[in-house]
Design a protein around this nucleic acid. Sequence first.
DNA 1: CCTTTAGTTCGGAAATTCCCGAACTAAGTG
DNA 2: CACTTAGTTCGGGAATTTCCGAACTAAAGG
Lengths: 162, 162
Amino acid sequence: MDLEIQRKTLIEELGVHLEEDNLAPLAARILATLILAGRRGVTFDEMVCELSAGKSTVSTHLDHLQATNRVTYFTKPGDRKRYFVIDPNLILNLMEEMITKWDKEKRLHLKIRAYKEQCNCEARETGGFQFDLEFQEDFLTYLEETSNAVKKFRDKLLSRNN
Amino acid sequence: MDLEIQRKTLIEELGVHLEEDNLAPLAARILATLILAGRRGVTFDEMVCELSAGKSTVSTHLDHLQATNRVTYFTKPGDRKRYFVIDPNLILNLMEEMITKWDKEKRLHLKIRAYKEQCNCEARETGGFQFDLEFQEDFLTYLEETSNAVKKFRDKLLSRNN
DNA sequence: CCTTTAGTTCGGAAATTCCCGAACTAAGTG
DNA sequence: CACTTAGTTCGGGAATTTCCGAACTAAAGG
């Protein structure tokens, strides 16, 4: 079946890509599998089987993916299995993560700027090296602007989902 | 000297943060050192000494940081040393990287959508599972919008630097 | 109560990443 | 030419990450 080959290829391709944001190879494959499976969900055993991975490995990675708000699951009445799916808020969660990271970075650059200003102040008396603050300023506006852009889209999504 | 302690602390703090985007611990410390040193630049030996690292380690990481457009150096006439500095276009380069990554992601999600549509088409006849394409659509607009926002800021920076 | 299903926990093996020192090069210095 | 300076290259070794199997738990089924 050609569709099946397509699916496998896509899982691998997407998996490799997802590894780039600090996901272990197998964690990336799990996420890719769930993205390709959609709302139907994938059970624990299906993942173990399909990815030919150890149960413990899948278990650990699923824990981590749930803890980082990338994955959830649902159950069916009278069925003990969990059907894992990508978190319906994944996009929002990813944006939230970016915003948090940029905030942290902004605070760091503010500290650095303060440090450099202090250095400049002391050096002015002795005629020593003066820091150029343009880089910090640019970086701060860069963080501010990209952060705001993402926030704007986040709010748009949020209001749509009311 | 209190400023020196402040600097060391900032290098460490910034270093830990920079590790988050796939930089080896020492590579992150090098970048942090350069960010805090500013235009004056830092020589190879200063890094080896200050970070108490092996010369080979510093050499390798500097290569990598230059290859990924994060770091450059300048020289002074009659001085064989290289003075390493963060690439003056670092911010632009970082944005370019983000845009490239999002583009790749977009192409992947287009492929996935095509795959799911094909599945839906076949399943419609047999009455099988139908994929919900909303997630792909949302992800594509998410990538589109954030990408555009960053591009807009990039162009603003570019036109300023004419 | 025994068995099956659906996982979890834990100790460690395998693979990978990160870093180092020793030996080397290449360019200038005396 | 011998020596110093400013690095680079290469062969591991230590640390970390990733993954696994074996033993376990907890819930449901017969």
